[in-house]
Amino acid sequence: MALQIVHACVNCCACVEVCPNEAIYADTPHFLIDEAKCTECLGEYADPQCAAICPIECAIVNELGDPINPPGSLTGIPLEKLIELGLYKAAA
């Protein structure tokens, strides 16, 4: 089990600083998580640390590919507003 960083990542390094397993490394075009090292912080912290500090919605996903921080969850911008502005397309 491991989390994954995907294309939305802006390379801000915040997750690298807080990962207790040193599982996160710089790569191009964005940071990646070493799945052999990632424990999803189980047993150590209540929340996976990378996802708890990440400022970008949808940048970190679980094994199923679902974002830990879905659209609107960090900025507080309502989904309808994001859809109206064309910044989010609801899954078909």
Partner: peptide, 14 residues
């Protein structure tokens, strides 16, 4: 210093 530990409503990290 790219990392931040808070979110401000006037900032967009992207």
């Amino acid at each position: 210093a790219p990392a931040c530990n808070i979110q401000c409503n006037y900032c967009n990290r992207k």
